[in-house]
Design a binder for these strands. Structure first.
Lengths: 251, 251
DNA sequence: CCGACTTTGTGCATGCGTTCACAAGCGGTA
DNA sequence: TACCGCTTGTGAACGCATGCACAAAGTCGG
C-alpha cells in the first residue's frame, strides 16, 4: 500500500505550457529545499536586498550552488544571466509553486505539552497556516482557549473540520490514540497530515502524511555519536576488533 | 564547508571482522529506518512476541520487505532462514548499532513553549536520552524546575555542559538566537545538535546537525494540497493553462 | 536421513537525485 | 554596434538507494 506516485500517462500531452505539469515533476527533496530558499529570500527582502546570485543564495541556504539552480529550474527560469535573481520575483514564484497564495487552515489534535506549543506558535512560522481548530479527548480542556482558539472535543472533529475547511491536520496525541485520530481526520476529508506521534500511520493512497519523530532524530544523532567514538577508539587504540563495546551496558 | 564524509582510506584494511567498519557503511536513510524498526520491535517484545518474519515486520514498519532485509543486512546476519528473526536478538543488535547501549545526556536550550514540551517529555520517548540540563536567557526562569530539572542561565552553558557530559544539544530558541547558541554549544564540546529553529546553522565539519523545521513540513504539505487541487482542476476543467491561480491572494 | 517448504541474504538492474561542466544569454563598455 | 565578462540554465555523468528475483540455508514432517 501507499505507492505514492500515479501510474504512467506521462508522455501523453505533447507540449506543456502550464507549470501545473511542471509541479508534478518536482522531486520531493527539491520541494523541501524550495521552502528553505523561500525563508532565506524573505529574510533578504526584509533587509532591503533586491537581487541575489545563485552563489550567495546557496551559501545562505547551506547547499551547493548547482543544486540550487537546478531546484529553481524545476519551477521555471526566472533569473537573469550575468546578473542573478530578483528577490521579489523569486519569492512570489516559490510561494505560488508551494501553494502559499492560498491560506491552509490547520487543526491540531492533542492539546498536551506539544499541542500547546504548536497552538501558541500562532499561525505557524512564516504565516499562511492559520490554526483554526484544536481538539482533545479531555472534557476539562474543552472550551478553554489555547493560543486564542477554544479547544473542541474530539468527537466533534468531523463537523468542525468540515465547517472550518481544515486542509492540514496535526497529530500531537499519545501514540495509542494516533491511528484512531488519523482515521477520523481522513473521514472528515483532511488529506494532509503532520504526525508527531511515534507511530506508523496507515492511510489511504490519497492522503499525504509527513512524520516528525523526535525519538528517531535523537537515535540518528546517537548513531553518529557512537560512530565517532568508534573511529576515535580505532585511531588511538588501533584495530583490535573489540574496542569500546567491551563495556557493553545491557538494556 | 560541511563535506560530511571523511576522505578516502576506504580500501586500506584488507578484511574487516569488526562491525565498526560496517557502521560507517550504513546509509543514512537506513539508519533512520532502523530506529523505526527498533520501536516496532520493542512494542512486539512488550506484547510477548518472540519471533517475527521480515514480511510481518516490514508491514508494521510501513516499508518494503526487501528493503527491510537489506537494512538489517547492513548490521549483520541475525535472522534464521526459514524462520525469521528473534525479536530480542534484533532489538539488542539494533540498539548496539545505534549506540543506545550508552546513555546520551541531552541539553535543551530555550525554555519557551517548545522547550517546555521537550523538557516534559521526560527522558525522551524510547528512553536512553535523559535530559540533564535546561538553559534560557530569561533570568526569571533560572532556577525554576521544568520537568524536574532546574533551568540554568545560558551564560553557564559551557561549564554545565562539560560537567554533565552533555552529548546532544537541542536548540529551541527564537531564530535570531540560534546561531549564537549553536556556537556556544559547539565550544562546550557538544558534537550533535538537534535544531528546531528555522535557521540554517553554520558549524564545523566535526559537528552533526539535524533539523526539525515545522514551517518546511507545513509548506511541503501545502505543495501537495496545491498539486492535488491542480490535478482535480485539470481533470474537471481541462488544460486551459490557467486554472485556480486566477484567484490569487497576494501575501 | 531425506525431501519439501519457508524465509533470509544478496547480486543485479532500475530509477532518482546530485554534481559537473559548459553553452547560451544578458548587461556593461568602448 | 560589437565585444567582454559574468551568471544562469541544463545535458550528461555519476553515485546512492530501492526493488526484484533467486540461491543459500535452515526447519519440519515423514
Amino acid at each position: 500500500m501507499a505507492s505514492q506516485r500515479g501510474e504512467g500517462e506521462t508522455t501523453t500531452t505533447p507540449a506543456e505550457p502550464a507549470d501545473r505539469e511542471r509541479a508534478r515533476a518536482i522531486p520531493e527533496a527539491a520541494v523541501a529545499r524550495l521552502a528553505v530558499y523561500l525563508r532565506v529570500l524573505s529574510g533578504m527582502a526584509d533587509q532591503g536586498v533586491t537581487a541575489v546570485s545563485s552563489e550567495e543564495l546557496s551559501q545562505a541556504a547551506g547547499v551547493n550552488a548547482a543544486k540550487l539552480r537546478k531546484d529553481l529550474s524545476y519551477i521555471g527560469s526566472y533569473g537573469t544571466r550575468g546578473v542573478g535573481y530578483d528577490v521579489e520575483v523569486l519569492v512570489s514564484h516559490i510561494e505560488r509553486i508551494l501553494g502559499l497564495t492560498r491560506n491552509h487552515s490547520v487543526a491540531v489534535v492533542g492539546i498536551g505539552n506539544l499541542g500547546h506549543a504548536l497552538a501558541n506558535y500562532g499561525g505557524f512560522p512564516g504565516r499562511g497556516f492559520p490554526v483554526t481548530a484544536l481538539f482533545d479527548v479531555d472534557e476539562d480542556l474543552v472550551g478553554i482557549p489555547v493560543g486564542g482558539i477554544p479547544v473542541s472535543h474530539i468527537d466533534d472533529i468531523t463537523a468542525v473540520c468540515l465547517e472550518r475547511e481544515v486542509s492540514i491536520g496535526v497529530i500531537a496525541t499519545p501514540p495509542p490514540a494516533a491511528q484512531s485520530v488519523c482515521d477520523r481526520l481522513v473521514s472528515a476529508g483532511v488529506q494532509c497530515i503532520l504526525n508527531f506521534a511515534p507511530v506508523v500511520l496507515q492511510v489511504p493512497d490519497n492522503v499525504e502524511v509527513r512524520k516528525v519523530d523526535l525519538a528517531v532524530e535523537m537515535q540518528i544523532l546517537s548513531f553518529h555519536v557512537a560512530r565517532r567514538a568508534d573511529e576515535a577508539a580505532s585511531v588511538s587504540v588501533g584495530n583490535n576488533g573489540l574496542g569500546v563495546d567491551g563495556m557493553v551496558i545491557r538494556p
